[in-house]
Simulated scan of single mutants.
Amino acid sequence: MSRFTPVRRQYLVRTLVVTAIYAAGIFAAWYLIVKVGVSRPIAFGVALIPGLAMVGMFYNTLSMITATQDEFMRMLAVRQQLIAAGFALAVASVWGCLEMFDLVEHVEAFYIVVLWAIGLFVGQFSNRITHGVWGECP
């Protein structure tokens, strides 16, 4: 099987586009809200851009999984996503309990997506260890 199937290639291109929108949205929101001081309705709209870009990332992942024809590779992708989600939710839950009792500092909720992204690598590594292959998704 080719390392870059059409599904994987499409996934990677969409990921790059969504990541660029996310980065541009973060910069635009910071600049317009912090530096320029735009009105609240405009600030609200601009601040939504990076969050909606992450929604696009999740949709992109779902599209990749449903478009993958090889059932084994699809299983590896789903397994990777479950591990990533479990990793992110576990860390967020433990941190939240510690935060609730003022034992650790507050962390913004959007960092859960960062944990999910780290969890993707954990899931991919787990696939490699348990099944001998990394899987189709990066």
Rank of each mutant, 00 (worst) to 15 (best):
V91I: 15
F44P: 04
A117D: 05
T66H: 00
R74N: 04
T61G: 04
C137K: 12
S2K: 07
A90N: 10
Q124P: 06
F87A: 13
W30E: 11
L82V: 14
V113E: 02
Q69Y: 02
A29V: 09
A88G: 04
Y59Q: 00
V94H: 01
Q81L: 11
P6I: 02
A47E: 11
T15W: 03
A20I: 07
Q124M: 14
E136S: 10
W116F: 15
A117T: 11
I26C: 03
N127C: 03
M100L: 13
A88K: 00
G56N: 06
A24K: 03
Y59V: 00
V122P: 10
F27S: 08
A29R: 06
A29N: 10
S93V: 13
T66Q: 04
V78L: 12
A28N: 10
G123T: 14
S63R: 10
A23M: 12
G25Y: 03
A67N: 10
A67P: 03
T66A: 00
F58M: 12
L16N: 10
M1L: 04
R79M: 06
A90I: 14
S2R: 07
W30Y: 11
A117P: 04
L103I: 02
I65S: 00
G37L: 05
G25P: 07
A53D: 12
E136L: 08
W30T: 14
A88C: 08
S93P: 05
I118E: 05
I118N: 02
G37T: 14
Y31G: 07
G132L: 01
F110I: 07
L62P: 01
C137D: 09
V91R: 00
Y111M: 05
A43R: 01
M73K: 02
F125N: 12
A29W: 09
F125L: 13
E99D: 05
P50I: 01
A29E: 08
V113M: 06
T5Q: 02
G96Y: 04
A85Y: 03
A67M: 07
A88N: 06
T130L: 10
L76G: 01
F58E: 10
E108T: 00
R79Y: 05
R128M: 15
K35E: 14
R74Q: 13
L48E: 14
A90L: 15
L32F: 05
R8Q: 08
L76H: 00
M73H: 02
L32W: 05
Y22S: 08
A109K: 02
Q80K: 05
I21L: 12
K35Y: 09
L76Y: 00
V133P: 08
V94Y: 05
V34Y: 07
V133I: 15
R9T: 15
T61A: 04
S126A: 15
F101E: 11
H106Q: 11
R128P: 06
T68Q: 06
I42Q: 12
A28K: 01
F125Q: 02
I112Y: 05
A92H: 00
E105K: 05
V17E: 09
V91E: 10
I42V: 15
V38C: 06
R79K: 09
G119K: 06
S126V: 15
F87C: 03
C137Q: 11
E136F: 02
A20L: 13
A117K: 03
W116G: 12
M75F: 13
A109H: 08
V55F: 02
V78K: 01
T5R: 01
Y22H: 09
L76E: 03
F121V: 13
M54K: 01
A28I: 07
G56D: 13
A92R: 00
S63C: 04
E105D: 09
L76D: 03
E108F: 01
